[in-house]
Design a protein around this nucleic acid. Structure first.
Lengths: 152, 152
DNA sequence: ATTACTGCAAAGGCTTTGCACGGGT
DNA sequence: ACCCGTGCAAAGCCTTTGCAGTAAT
């Protein structure tokens, strides 16, 4: 399904800028900031404005075609892959990449559904989404020595 | 252990502002933004500056006494509870509260360690921390109808 | 006495907005 | 032809920083 059709389904106008931005975002393995995406796309779309990048990302998010990722500092990052998957965050650089899907699914399937229901009941909330990030650094330490802390 | 001792252990100077801010942060069940904390504490500490709130939060984070929570928009939020626990995020308001500890521990203990090791191996990273948020809204829908999506 | 912290105000990132023009339907 | 999207520049949040005075060790 090409960008034009995707936009049509959501009732979005199909402009050159939107197509280029959306396709670039889908094809990037990292989840770029608005500025990184801007730099990536500039060559294919001279005259493009950073404001348009922000506006477009906002439109895509509201249409459900992309997601703004939570970060602790600096610019927001964006991900046009809306299927359930997990992220690895490099705590030194802030870079975000996907967890390979087979592994991510295993983690997801091990979540205890009964506990989640109990969380909904006790907090009187409905859980729409569970967000999971693996936070760490490049270069593995010897695996035996890894101590993990689960939090936030 | 009082704030003075906690600071002493980390080699932090014990100032009136730091004590008041740290104690207020520990005692808040929500995880406030710098400005929310500022408002909360102003009465107990007239003349306090918002810049000091930011500076203090930064110092506490670097000393491992508090954590800046990732948000998708607006101000950062801070949590002085550093023991491993999970958060519920209200997607409408941005408010963040803790998941009851017994439930959080169950979720944490169900994480498949072998899969995590495999993630480290394949991404050539060391996982320091796994961050999990339950994202949803107030007011439970009937539990039978809940469909969940795991992601980000 | 020394050094670090605070408050203020100004500067700095990141993002949004107002408006006139041009492109999409 | 109509209306929305774009580009530009300005404004706006949120956060950090420079500096002079003050407090903590």
């Amino acid at each position: 399904m090409d960008a034009r059709s995707v936009f049509a389904v959501r009732g979005l106008r199909c402009t050159r800028q939107r197509v280029v931005l959306y396709e670039a975002l889908i094809n990037m393995k990292t989840h770029p900031t608005a500025e990184e995406l801007y730099d990536k796309v500039r060559e294919h779309c001279p005259g493009l404005s950073l404001a348009t990048v922000y506006n477009t990302l906002e439109v895509l998010c509201r249409a459900g075609l992309c997601r703004r990722l939570p970060t602790t500092r600096g610019s927001s990052r964006y991900d046009a892959d809306t299927h359930p998957h997990l992220h690895a965050v490099n705590s030194e650089t802030g870079d975000v990449v996907d967890i390979p899907d087979d592994l991510g699914q295993e983690v997801i399937q091990n979540l205890p559904q009964d506990v989640i229901k109990e969380i909904e009941a006790r907090l009187d909330m409905s859980v729409d989404r569970i967000s999971i990030q693996f936070i760490g650094r490049e270069q593995a330490r010897p695996l035996e020595k890894v101590t993990q802390e689960v939090s936030v």
